[in-house]
Each structure stands twice: as C-alpha cells, then as structure tokens.
Design a protein around this nucleic acid. Structure first.
Lengths: 275, 275
DNA sequence: CTCCGTTGTTCTCAGCTTGAGTATTTCTCA
DNA sequence: TGAGAAATACTCAAGCTGAGAACAACGGAG
C-alpha cells in the first residue's frame, strides 16, 4: 500500500493538514541509457560530471524528477531532450522505455538517491551538447560482446562502455544492453536505430552489431519478411548498392506490429549456467 | 546523471556541507503484487486501507522505503515478510522481482509518491494477518482471462482483481499479471507456485490457470522434459492418483535452469492489434 | 571501359519441433 | 467390480530452421 499515517479525519481535512516534510527524504532521479549506431558501431551517450561526487568521471545522462510536476516518463523524455538537444519532432522517432529502478542506499555518497533508469533506442543523432551539471557529453562506443570480432563469446562479457562509470551506472548500462539484446528478439524495435526507410541488410547490420555475431543473410531475410507487421515494402529500392558491390536493396518501412511472432532467436542465448 | 549541485570543494568537504532537505520531497514506496494459487485458482494478496486516502478500499500491500537504511529489493522483501507473516526460511521459496516504477504526480492525492512495484510468486501460503496501516489483508481471486471457462479470450481482458483498487494499483496489478504470463513462457518460474516436489500435471495446472487456457497434456509433458534444467526427476511417484482417477504421476524437483530453451509458447499470444 | 569480387534475394533440402490425435495402463469413485 | 479419467508414450503430418547454392546486379580496381 502507499503512504498512510492512520489519521481518521475526512479526506479534505486530512489533506490540508498533511506535511510532506514529515517524511525522511529520498531523492529521485532518472538516468537514461541512450543507444544509437554511429558508423555501424553501437554507442551510448555519456556525460562528464562537472561537480562532486565522481567529479570528472563519466556517467549516464539524467537528472532529478521535478517533484509534483512530472511523471517518470515525462522526466525521462525531458532529460533526453535536454541532453541531446533534439526537437520534439525528432524525439518522436526515439523509442523510450523504463528499464528498472536502482536504490541501494550507498549508491550515491551524498544521500539515499533512487534512480529510475530508462532505455532509449535512437537513429544516428547529432553530437550532443553539454549542459546543466555536465562538463561534456559524448557518444561513446560500447565494448563487450562487440568489438571487431566475428562474434565470439569472449572478452568482457555483458558489455560496457570503455570508461569506468560513476555511481552504479556501469551496472545500469550492462542491464540496458542486455535488455536491448533481448528486445531485438521479440519486438521490431531494431528499426528504431534506422532512418524511416531502410533496407533489410541495414536491419541485419543492427542485429549483428547489437548481438555481436554475424547472421545468415538469406535466413534473416526470410524471417523478417515472414513475420507479420515487422516491415512493409515501400516499392522503392536504395539509391546505390552496397559499398563493396552488390545490387541495390529494396526499401522498407517499419510495420505496425509491436511484438514479433514468431520471435527472431539469437543463435545461442546466454544461460548463466551454459554447460 | 545523478544529483549534483555544482560545488567545487573536495569530496569530503562537500559531503559534510550537504543537506538533503534542500531537495523537494518525493516519497518513495514499494508495492507488491503477490500471486499464489489457492485451490487451483490464481489469487493476489490485498489489504484494506485503514486510513486516508482511499480509506476502506483495497490496495496492494506495500509501504515506505526506509531512507538511507535499505535498498529497494530489501524493502520489498521486508514488506512481503510483514504482510504475509512468513519466516525468513519460508520466504526463500518465494520468487521476488522488480516489476516497474509508477510515478504520475497525481497518483496519490497527498503528495508526489513514486512507487516501485514488485512481483512475487508464492506457493500456497497461510492466510495473511493485517498489520501496520491495513485494516484487513486477504487473498483475493483474480479475474480476467481466467474464471471458470475453458479458456476463451473474452470477458475482462488483461486481468484484474474483483475489487476496485486504490491509487493506480489496478494498473500495477494488470501489469504484474501480464508479466507473470510472459515469465512462464521463458523461465521455469511456474514451479515457484508449487511445493518443492511436484508432478508434471500439477505444473501444467499452473500454466493453465495463469494463461487461462487448457494445454495438450501429452505435448506439455514432452516439452517440459525436453527443456534442459526445467525439472529433474526424484525417482518417486505421487501418493495418490488424480482426484478423479488415473495413475500416480512421477514427482519432480525444479531444475537449475534460469531460462527455458526453447521457450514454452502460449498457444496464441496477445498482439494489441490482433484484430 | 572491363573484369572480379561482393552482395541482395530466392531456392532447396534435411533435421527438428510443434500440434493433434491415439494407444496403453493405472487409478478413483460409485 | 466396472466405468470413466488421467499419466505417459507414440505416431504423423505440417511448419520452421540452419546451411548452402544459385543468380543477377553493382562498385571498384586496373
């Protein structure tokens, strides 16, 4: 149940007498894992902290929820707009969903700060601008099951940025990456990383980068076209063929499905206890 | 990023001068959707509110997070123990996971209260005791894609309790039920609703009740036994056959898998736009 | 301008999984 | 003691998956 000192007045009188300051303070922030693809590589938006604590370290963009003024989703959308400098129209192309909440008492040395984390998928965005209490903001390549490899499962498991992050943002980022990998399996959200019109090989490149492994072009093509509502044809074809040759691919738009049936399964999922 | 008025002192001095009361207050609670099966029916734990607001209405169990003293998971486990009166040992058999956070400014008329919702799966538990600011506490049958039917997809979609809930707890409950249905597909958590040793028909009954539809006994049996780590045989068989006849079923224990490969798919998933 | 190597798209095919139905045997209940 | 029900095991056709090949359309290097 929610807050309720057991007063017995009628509701109006109760509310008039109510003093929020009676409650011990917990601060509430939203932090956002914004993922995008830049030149085919997965990047996450990070900001350099201008103030204490963790001054000079990199962290996820985010900020306080404005008490009494905005909901969690609104706060996340506002922070996202502020940090990326995007217009409301451009923001509509970004997928934003709640990732989870993090509330260890010691995660922030100042006081008990609970953070509601969000996950965003964006098409290639312009360079961010620093603002607020951020010294700098920058797109940062994500390492992990990624890198240059053909997709082995070695190196840093789970995935992370190539900098040590402030607070518990390293864990939040890892959780966001795992969520992103899972979401590609059963939703058509991979298209959120691309322009409104895209080719199937471009879509395949999104999967390959985020899953960290090559996919069979023919089978991927077949699955995408057979999943109802995943993509719809525009009838057009791309201006040019691939950078290294090959015919021009057909162009598609995202379909109206929200879930994929059947799902596109990763060649070999995780299982913490595989073997 | 997290809270950071841009002071420039060194970190120790900064922390000494820091006053949490400088920040506008948002209250933080945890609310728990505790699901269990009683006599084969899905039930959720509800409490009747003793105080304002929503006095006399039913709500999800929950309460404040103790600022500076406990994390979110800890708070949820504590509330769960308090409301169910369960020992630490019995609680270890309950599955508890974070469901999501709800923070509309107007969801609580007193002030801005953000609730972190948790979802719990429990085996048949004793009747709860009222406590704290709850007048009563009771297991309440869940309606929705359930009921007496053989599993049509009519009546109240999404699922809910048969009482109007306080705050936005109706929505939280609906989200919890949908999460539960999805979790049964790709995790072995259905076993969390049963005793440590159970038969495959009992496991099937869990799926049938939560998904609201009958499953093919033979195919279900085959899938469960072929999914690695789902169940492991005890070598024993049940004391008695089914209540209406039939041979005694073999007993199994939950296996060590955390994810099911391949998943047990529901005969026909949702799709908000499935005509 | 001409090859050569790449790549988009379509097919084929064997192996596996799934859904549905059946057979057999063991119980409970009346 | 007999009828009906349920636990398991099997069978079979249909659909899906992974792997590989075919073929044509393009970009780039000489």
């Amino acid at each position: 149940m929610s807050p309720a000192p057991a007063h017995r007045d009628d509701e109006a009188a109760f509310l008039a007498a109510y003093d929020p300051r009676d409650f011990p303070a917990i601060a509430l922030t939203v932090d956002i894992v914004v993922l995008t693809l830049r030149e085919g590589r997965l990047n996450v938006l990070l900001v350099e902290r201008a103030g204490q604590p963790f001054q000079g370290q990199w962290a996820l963009p985010g900020g306080f929820v404005k008490a009494g003024q905005e909901g969690l989703d609104e706060a996340a959308a506002r922070e996202l707009a502020e940090e990326t400098g995007l217009s409301a129209g451009a923001l509509r192309r970004v997928h934003l969903e709640q990732l989870g909440s993090y509330g260890e008492p010691a995660r922030d040395p100042r006081m008990h700060v609970v953070s509601v984390a969000y996950l965003a998928f964006a098409p290639d965005l312009p360079d961010p601008r620093a603002g607020g209490d951020a010294a700098r903001a920058a797109w940062t390549p994500v390492v992990g099951p990624h890198g240059g490899g053909t997709g082995g499962r070695n190196s840093t498991e789970r995935g992370s940025a190539d900098r040590e992050l402030a607070f518990d943002h390293g864990r939040i980022l890892a959780d966001g990456l795992e969520r992103a990998r899972a979401k590609l399996e059963y939703t058509p959200l991979a298209a959120a990383f691309l322009e409104p019109e895209f080719t199937i090989p471009e879509l395949r490149a999104v999967y390959e980068e985020i899953w960290g492994q090559k996919l069979h072009p023919g089978n991927f093509h077949r699955k995408v076209l057979s999943a109802p509502g995943f993509v719809e044809s525009t009838g057009e074809t791309a201006e040019r063929g691939g950078s290294r040759g090959g015919p021009r691919a057909r162009l598609y738009r995202a379909g109206d499905a929200r879930l994929l049936h059947p799902a596109l399964l990763r060649p070999d999922a995780e299982e913490p206890d595989a073997r």
